[in-house]
Write a protein that binds this DNA or RNA. Sequence first.
DNA 1: CGGTATCCAAATCGATACTG
DNA 2: CAGTATCGATTTGGATACCG
Lengths: 108, 108
Amino acid sequence: METKTDMKYNCPIQYTLDLIGGKWKLIIIWHLATEGIMRYSELRRSLKGITHKMLSQQLKELESDGFIHREEYPQVPPKVEYSLTDFGKSILPVLKGMSEWGTSNMNK
Amino acid sequence: METKTDMKYNCPIQYTLDLIGGKWKLIIIWHLATEGIMRYSELRRSLKGITHKMLSQQLKELESDGFIHREEYPQVPPKVEYSLTDFGKSILPVLKGMSEWGTSNMNK
DNA sequence: CGGTATCCAAATCGATACTG
DNA sequence: CAGTATCGATTTGGATACCG
């Protein structure tokens, strides 16, 4: 499968949307930003309503696009921790903007 | 149909994504921001690849969510102009952030 | 010119079951 | 615990034709 960073874009907005658009990715990044390192099960609890399939799929894509780091501890039962990379953190100002805009406009 | 501003959200990111997520909305807003007032056919030319269906659908939603203003001139052949409302303009800083982030990361 | 309507294809999403 | 596999429902997107 071709990663999105392989492709060529002319519009930076299209590019950005392609990387972090969709229903869950920004929410995942947002939770990792505010909570720090999180285990798979913690993420699942925080992101109420997300299914196994969606969570693991989105985590995989976020990892392969360089936004998050996956640390696996070889023990039984397994333990996996997810955290933002520096690249992942670089999108946070945009997210902050969205969050602030949303806060001042929703529920009214 | 229930407009999105009717619904209640707890997460501002979810709210924002719901309003301006999807494949075309931000691009439409972006074009209206840089070009100013645009006719339907101008938008169609600018947004290479968009179909009638998508364009009119997205414009309708953007209008009903308060982002754009639709001015119809009663003449033959018809003429319709679209422009950003103040509310629509209020999202521009977020878009600018996305554009800058995209510019500095794409194609490398 | 600026749209709708219809029909169909494709992508996305979700429930459930199963695994090391 | 942290996933994958499978299937089906739902949503989204596109081609084309038609309308005032």
